[in-house]
């Protein structure tokens, strides 16, 4: 995808975000303390700036779209990006239920395998020892709270 095309897409998204932001800013309550700017003042200013910038980016993108030939095709989103994100999402879903120690082991193993570590022994060692080490380091060593599971 060429950069001008990306610019057009992102400016459209920003226009959308900007206008919904404007809509919600207008819904904000007005407080009666003093004759001074209320909670909606600053958001309204930002709305105006965002909409202006998005429009400028859109115009810029369209102009360059005409001038420039579309360039070489980029590869689609690599599979590993999706896999990594899926691992993260699963991990985050599991965390509140089973806690840091239990949830981290499969997550760690999953990411290790994504990093092309195929041998089982290093995966097992890494995915158990490192989360346990981190747990004790932070929890016991530095007194930092780690996600605890409600099932545990």
């Amino acid at each position: 995808m060429s950069m001008p095309l990306k610019n057009v897409i992102i400016s459209m998204i920003m226009l959308l975000i900007g206008s919904s932001y404007l809509y919600f800013s207008l819904q904000l309550p007005v407080r009666s303390i003093g004759n001074v700017p209320g909670p909606s003042f600053f958001p309204l200013v930002i709305s105006a700036i965002v909409l202006f910038l998005a429009a400028a980016l859109l115009v810029n993108g369209i102009v360059n779209l005409r001038n420039e030939q579309p360039q070489e095709a980029e590869p689609a989103v690599p599979k590993r990006v999706i896999s990594t994100l899926v691992w993260f999402v699963l991990y985050l879903i599991a965390l509140p239920y089973v806690g840091f120690l239990v949830a981290s082991v499969p997550f760690f193993a999953g990411l290790m395998m994504l990093c092309e570590q195929k041998k089982l022994v290093p995966v097992a060692i890494g995915s158990i020892l490192i989360p346990v080490f981190l747990y004790f380091l932070f929890r016991q060593g530095f007194n930092i709270l780690l996600p605890a599971g409600q099932w545990m």
Binding site: F88, L95, E116, G126
Partner: peptide, 27 residues
């Protein structure tokens, strides 16, 4: 090896964002 380093960073991202305010939402 990257295979040990990258998942560790992943865990630290989660710890760092949780420990700040003890909030799952922050993760």
């Amino acid at each position: 090896p990257r295979a040990f380093m990258m998942p560790t960073i992943g865990l630290l991202c989660v710890i760092g964002s949780y420990a700040l305010r003890n909030s799952f939402f922050d993760i």
